[in-house]
Design a protein around this nucleic acid. Structure first.
Lengths: 266, 266
DNA sequence: CGCATCGTTCGGCGGCTACCGAACCGTCCG
DNA sequence: CGGACGGTTCGGTAGCCGCCGAACGATGCG
């Protein structure tokens, strides 16, 4: 019997302590704010998170202790700083999934207005380690259109897609059980974009090659001139696409006209 | 400022009320037990859930009110009964994902021992609306081996897979934005199995055609003689496969030997 | 109609927990 | 060496919340 429910008298037939405890870590407003901030994939110091969420340093310290103990965060001490980051891609995916479930924009009411400033700056973001926002959608759509990625029957790279990464010199190294390609539901665009090993590799490449730059201390990224050219040349993405708001619920091309939706064959 | 944190004095710069509230719904042990029980995809009455979790009817009623208000559950009143079920496949997926994150078996310590009884009964389960457990893994592995399903580059049906469903007379109807194929991580087997529209259609077909039967009031299913024959004929699944425990971390065949993991081309 | 059953509402209780400030410890740097 | 700074620990406080039983309403059935 858990400490929390020690006053329970009735015999409990079925329990779910693990599930409830995990959700409990995210169920606090301050801890949730920490997790969302950490979705930028970088390490934050305890003080930064405390100021970000508007709580005292002591409070933040206690929260971080719980999140680290619950293995949602990994920590690294450097001198007098305590850096924390999301434990791994699984945790990032989990937080993304939960955030996507809530009504869109509920947690960031001002984000769209903020982004409207800046002409050459397309609204791009990162989700932990892959591209999101309009940029992420544009890349995913372009790869789907070029049949590098297949979304009509699930979410997977095609053989041509593997070749494309190979051609760009972007290595895809399988680590553990993380899938090569995975759909991540963007909670501002409400559409899936490329995550998984391939999404992370592409994002790393884009940052390394100077296609985009991180701006500020959060998740936003800015596309450079060089990046606009690269995305146009390699994926046929029109620069204007990155400036306009992408249409919701776009149709994806179906590769094979055969029987979709399927029906009983004569 | 939320009611819960009304005593907060410091100005809060970034909030996450939606995320925290959603997690809070799952963060209670009793509500978590409800959600896990409802993963069988069927509707339970309030009283059944109360007895299942070992709480008073009044307590269960309050919890159900919160879960319905939070749109995790849908309710249907019939006479003096209040039936509740998971709101949709998205919620089911979310609960599955969370449950898979906790250490395997933590929430059902006795399940493996229970399942060892029964000779012709293979350990099968449902996750909301698709097959899971050893049966789900066996089906997913068989479809992958036959190249109906592609897991090496993501998780998607192949064109051959679409044809297979067509041949079986199992219609795949796209509803809303639910993907045709999706990986669901089984938290007892620790391996992905087929979910999404195709997984649900296959499960519905298997139950309708008498390939398997639900047993008891929970998630377990039993494979019939007819089902053993059908799975063997259509997917080449050896009946013994369903009785043994499947190996963890099996290797999936890679369709194309070309450059995987990819490396820079000369 | 009358009883049993299912569910809901309400009051009250007890415990957990998020919060803060103050004190303290360790690191960095002038 | 000493001050500044980041982080942690420790009391103490306040509020939320999960729990129950009792009372009540509603439905179904004999």
């Amino acid at each position: 019997m858990s400490i929390r429910n020690a006053h329970r008298t009735r015999p409990r037939t079925t329990r779910a302590p693990g599930l409830a405890a995990l959700a409990g870590l995210i169920a606090d407003e301050t801890r949730a704010a920490f997790l969302l901030a950490l979705l930028d994939g970088r390490a934050w110091t305890a003080g930064e998170l405390a100021r970000h969420a508007g709580v005292a340093a002591s409070t933040a310290s206690e929260h971080l202790g719980k999140l680290v103990a619950g293995e949602l965060l990994a920590e690294e001490r450097q001198g007098r700083h305590r850096y924390v980051r999301l434990a791994d891609a699984r945790v990032a995916q989990l937080v993304e999934d939960l955030a996507a479930q809530v009504t869109p924009g509920a947690d960031r009411p001002r984000s769209l207005r903020e982004s409207s400033a800046g002409s050459a700056m397309a609204r791009g973001r990162t989700c932990y380690d892959h591209l999101a926002g309009r940029l992420g959608i544009a890349v995913t759509d372009a790869m789907t259109g070029l049949q590098l990625l297949r979304q009509d029957t699930g979410f997977a790279l095609t053989d041509e897609g593997l070749a494309w990464f190979d051609d760009q010199g972007i290595p895809l190294v399988r680590t553990g059980r993380r899938p090569l390609a995975r759909a991540c539901l963007d909670w501002t665009e409400r559409r899936p974009h490329l995550a998984g090993v391939a999404g992370a590799a592409l994002c790393r490449h884009a940052l390394g090659a100077g296609w985009c730059l991180r701006i500020g201390s959060e998740r936003a990224v800015k596309i450079t001139e060089k990046g606009e050219r690269a995305f146009a040349e390699l994926l046929g993405i029109e620069p204007t696409t990155l400036h306009r708001h992408a249409p919701l619920f776009a149709q994806y091309p179906v590769r094979n006209s055969r029987a979709f939706p399927t029906s009983r064959r004569p």
